[in-house]
Every structure is written in structure tokens, then in C-alpha cells.
Amino acid sequence: MPAGTLYRGREGMWSWVAHRVTGVLIFFFLFVHVLDTALVRVSPEAYDDVVATYKTPIVNVLEYGLVAAILFHALNGLRVIAVDFWSKGPKYQKQMLWTVVGVWVVLMAGAFYPVLQHTLRTLFGS
């Protein structure tokens, strides 16, 4: 283990790291998203042009990544609240993290087709 560090690794630290990273990514996307939505005040064509970008395969896959980040941040955020406010929260924080990961995997599997259907249909036909 490297000397001079307070970081302890394992579930507690890595969930905290993932919460930070996903939080920052979501916040940066939010800036872009408010700006692109503001184009509805310019003209319908300007807005539809930028929304067309959201329908390209690469950006569509990035949307699935955005859903992944948001779902983790939301579920782990609920876990943080439980750790802070539930008397047994700190005791069960590891179990709660693995519950978060489990629910996240299920929701991501369920979101796969609905979120990516636009790309799947354009690339592989209807």
C-alpha cells in the first residue's frame, strides 16, 4: 500500500469515487443539454438539427452511457442517504452497495433495447 494516504479502498472508497466521477460527467452534460434545448427559442429547424446529432449511432451509445451514469448516481445517492440517516446504514453499507450494483445491472439490461432501438433499427433494419 502506498505510504501517506487516507484512502482505504474497497466498497466504501470506490463507490465514493464512482459517485464523484458520474456526478461531474452528468453536470457537464447538463450544461450542454440546457444549451441545446435553448435552441427551441431560435427556430424549429435549429433545434431539430441539433437533435439529429442525438440520433446518430455514436451519440445514441453515449446516451446509454449517460443513463448508466445517472442510474448509478441515483441509486448510490439513495444509499448515501440511508448511510447518513438510517441507524443501521453504516453497518450495511457494503450490502447496500452490492444491492445498488444488482439493481443497476437489471435496469441497464432493461434499458438496452429501448434506449438503443433508434440505432438498432437504422443499422440493422426495422
Binding site: P44, V115, L116
Partner: peptide, 16 residues
């Protein structure tokens, strides 16, 4: 926006 009713396909000025 991304799951129901065709996902991102339906989004445009008219939808907003």
C-alpha cells in the same frame, strides 16, 4: 425521453 414511445426517435420541436 429515451425509453417510452420509440426512444430518442420521436424527439423534435413538435414533441417539445
Amino acid at each position: 425521453q429515451l425509453v417510452l414511445d420509440g426512444g430518442v426517435s420521436k424527439i423534435g420541436f413538435a414533441f417539445v
